[in-house]
Amino acid sequence: MDPARRLGPAQIGVLTQLVVATVLLGGIYALISVGLTLIFGIMRVVNFAHGEFLMLGMYLAFWAFVAFTADPYFVVVVAIPLFFVVGLVVYGLVMRGVIHASHNVQIFTTVGLSTVLQNVALVAWSGDFRYVRPWHLSTVLRAGSTIFNLTQVVASLIAVALTLTLVAFMKWTHAGRVMRATAQDRDAATLMGIDTDRVYRLTFAIGIAAVGAAGVLVAPLYSVYPTAGLQFVLLSYVVVVLGGLGDMLGAMIGSLIVAAVEVAGSYLFGAAWKEIFYFILFILVLGFRPAGLFGQRGAGTLGV
């Protein structure tokens, strides 16, 4: 064996670094994926434009930084209500008409929305790669032999906090109960006096607010360009399928798994290979456990 690969203090340091990197990355992936799985779980719509809302969040962070040198982590506070409203508007203009249509129609609609948003961004802001460079990007944190920059740590902490807030909201608030009830049986929910159209509108807006906030958070860590959402949305499909479609806690665990595969793959084989590994994982899950790693089919979907 290559002496450099033998397990000594240096290798344990590397391992810790990889584990921490996984957790940090997983936290961000969780926030990206949880909106996707929420929208699917409640509305039964796969939002193919999910990544484009992430891209819009990145641009929001970029322009706020350019115009006001606003720190992305303060912009998040604005981004959540802003993207909530964007979600309401997009639901009213685009989604409401197709919410009861066939899956094909819904797929064409959200793919179309994705294309429109990408090209609007291209026309408005050009295809140039843009960068957000707040001061904390060059601030290094050390714990033992592991090293991270402050941006990554804070982004991940905020993402995890937002994700957990959303999970708690779904589980313990009346509005969350109403959303779950609508997912489980729409007619029965209507007979309880629940306005299900309003529930869908709210669900979509919450999902978009989550992914918009995630876009702001990741802006300093990745380059910003009109199709920046794609790289994230692909992996969030993997996350969501791993966790079980519609299962928010499953999505959090799925995020960690995808992050681990990405981190380990990048370390062992180079960053260019990372997608290969999580797509292999994706195919295996679809082949052997199509309801997700934890699923009885449908149960998780309808539970939270």
């Binding site: 109960r177 009830a181 007979l191 539970g303």
Partner: peptide, 24 residues
């Protein structure tokens, strides 16, 4: 209306089902 086949929310607790009844 109590619908035919009961149509409870199966993955929610009894208490949650009852509380949803008081949504109106």
């Amino acid at each position: 209306q109590v619908p035919e086949g009961r149509r409870l929310f199966p993955f929610m607790t009894v208490a949650e089902n009852l509380l949803l009844g008081a949504h109106a």
